[in-house]
Nucleic acid binder design. Structure first.
Lengths: 134, 134
DNA sequence: GATAACCTTCAACTTTACTATAAGGTTTAA
DNA sequence: TTAAACCTTATAGTAAAGTTGAAGGTTATC
């Protein structure tokens, strides 16, 4: 199938597929007689794998590692698990950072009456005129 | 004081201070006789405000708006609150996305024995061979 | 007086992951 | 047959927020 069809089936745009090929994330595609890239069902599977992994927040480099593991039928599942656990840890850290930010902002906004008067604890907090943040 | 001193006091690097000036986030600095930028305590306060705001995840553009509001002694606190509430909402959305990712990954890793055998539910999940994700 | 530690400008580069554009060849459908 | 809808390559641009480097002037210290 042509790249457009593969794009549709995998939900990865044609441009992005070419980009992935250019950076070596996927091997160079086979070519039809007319020079067009030619994809198999298997290639589409790979693209779907990439798409799902990216949706789960793995970097392209992580995905590259995961693809290697996926293709290696002898790999130890522990190797895959290690990549996943590391990523979970990173995600968890980011969640906690964001929660901390949210809580600080929530405290600030709750103390701001939010009307047309000018005094504003939010700005005071950002300026450091209270003990609540940093 | 010189830029290095202002950098130290505000915890914003000298290069970043120059960068902020170049994009108009802060006004052009006063100059000493030798041509060096000259900062006041007030300027350092502003840099600290910027630093805290950035730490709380506000974009540079948001910070620009917040600075305008900060400088405008007539502003309505409601205007500030609106910026903060919008940001809280964005942060909350991001937290939920990350939690969803984390939960999916946790499910996958929990079903993976993680030893030296090759079969791996994580890769199967990423490949779409189960119902758990996307 | 030398040398380190400052400061200056300006342009270019970094990161990540694409996206866009140009100029052109191919295929499909009316 | 001609127009739309594909496909090709190569180059450049985007986002965001800085960072780096070169080439040079200034100041503080030994």
């Amino acid at each position: 199938m042509n790249i457009g069809q593969a794009a549709k089936l995998s939900d990865v745009s044609a441009k992005t597929i070419r980009y992935y090929e250019s950076i070596g994330l996927i091997p160079k595609a086979a070519r039809a007689d007319n020079g067009y890239r030619d994809y198999s069902e298997n290639d589409v599977e790979t693209l779907r794998f990439i798409k799902r992994s990216r949706n789960l927040g793995f970097s392209v480099e992580d995905v590259s590692n995961l693809l290697d593991l996926w293709r290696d039928k002898e790999r130890a599942s522990a190797d895959v698990k290690a990549v996943a656990l590391k990523h979970i840890e990173d995600v968890e850290t980011r969640i906690q950072e964001l929660q901390s930010i949210r809580d600080t902002l929530t405290n600030l906004t709750e103390s701001c009456h939010g009307d047309d008067r000018p005094d504003c604890p939010i700005l005071e907090g950002l300026a450091g005129n209270n003990g609540c943040c940093n």
